[in-house]
């Protein structure tokens, strides 16, 4: 099946001479949620800007459902909705008017009932007649999302949609995103909340210094690169790690009540059996145990070599 978005050899050099994107190749599948992760300045907003027609590319091609976004710009743009990173709204218009304006701009006939539904999905129904300038920042962001949804896009870009927003909006937004996905909308989001990508995305791309470092199914990624942690709750606290256990990658919690063992799921053996028998031999007993997969965050740090 044809990709929703097909990016090849995409580069961007800004007038300042800064190379923001360097030979990006990326295919976004139809109907998936794709999370683009990367530190500040990695080029995420630039990439989105080029696909949506806000920024001129220096090299490469972008196709949206097969339509080149420059030579068939109108066909491509009809399909794409954008919620930019920066808050930018009108001031004097009402919420309803500004959302209806967006729908018209994208060539759709007026549909007051549909606009009302979009507004109520974003908890904006009671603000429909309010002037935008009277709204809080979080409400304005909801308005921007409503504007992007007003024209029923097939592909939706959300650039750092939850950066600095309240918990409620985050929750509403993910509900909307889940429903859009169920309706078949392709969603590309950038975020620096790695747990969000972990929770929402089907696939994850990591971009750093204008280059795509990695694109993976989220599940594969976490299994392939993930380390697991085994946490043992000890029956009695330990003052120090017994010498017999020194050969294992173990960490004792500050209060001595828990032992954490890190192991690589990719390894031939995990060393768990050996650990458990050594524990028994050393007379360390535990009450309970749990395992956890390492988060995307750790994967991210190990790939880009820095903290977000």
């Amino acid at each position: 099946m044809e990709a929703a978005i097909e990016i090849s050899g995409l580069s961007k050099v800004y007038a300042s001479g800064h190379k923001a994107l360097d030979g990006i190749d990326l295919e976004i599948r139809r109907g998936e949620i794709f999370a683009l992760l990367g530190p500040n300045g990695a080029g995420k907003t630039t990439l989105i800007g080029i696909v949506c027609g806000l920024i001129r590319k220096s090299a490469g091609t972008v196709k949206v459902f097969g339509h080149d976004n420059v030579t068939s710009a109108l066909q491509a743009r009809k399909l794409v909705g954008l919620v930019p990173q920066e808050l930018a709204t009108d001031a004097f218009e009402t919420v309803f008017d500004t959302v209806s304006f967006s729908r018209g701009l994208f060539g759709k006939p007026p549909a007051p009932a549909f606009v009302e539904k979009v507004l109520s999905d974003l908890s904006l129904a009671d603000k429909r007649k309010s002037k935008i300038m009277t709204l809080s920042g979080g409400m304005k962001r909801r308005v921007m999302i409503a504007k992007a949804l007003s024209h029923e896009p097939t592909v939706l870009f959300l650039d750092e949609p939850t950066a600095g927003v309240d918990v409620e909006l985050r929750r509403d937004m993910w509900n909307v995103v889940r429903r859009l996905k169920a309706e078949g909308v392709t969603i590309i989001l950038t975020t620096h909340y790695i747990d969000e990508a972990e929770e929402m995305a089907d696939r994850v791309g990591i971009i750093d210094k204008g280059k795509l470092v990695l694109v993976e199914e989220k599940r594969d990624l976490m299994q392939k690169l993930g380390k697991k942690r085994l946490t043992l709750e000890l029956a009695a606290p330990l003052a120090a790690l017994p010498d017999e256990l020194a050969r294992f990658d173990l960490q004792l919690s500050a209060d001595g009540s828990e032992l954490v063992y890190s192991y690589d799921t990719r390894g031939e053996r995990t060393g768990i059996t050996a650990l458990l028998s050594s524990l028994a031999a050393a007379g360390v007993r535990f009450r309970d145990l749990r395992t956890a997969e390492s988060s995307l965050e750790e994967i991210f740090v190990s790939l880009t070599g820095r903290q977000q």
Binding site: C52, G53, L54, A73, L74, Q75, R77, K78, V80, L82, P84, A88, S102, L105, F106, G107, K147
Partner: peptide
């Protein structure tokens, strides 16, 4: 941004 991203 909206005008620039719209099919106009």
């Amino acid at each position: 941004y909206e005008l620039l991203s719209a099919p106009v």
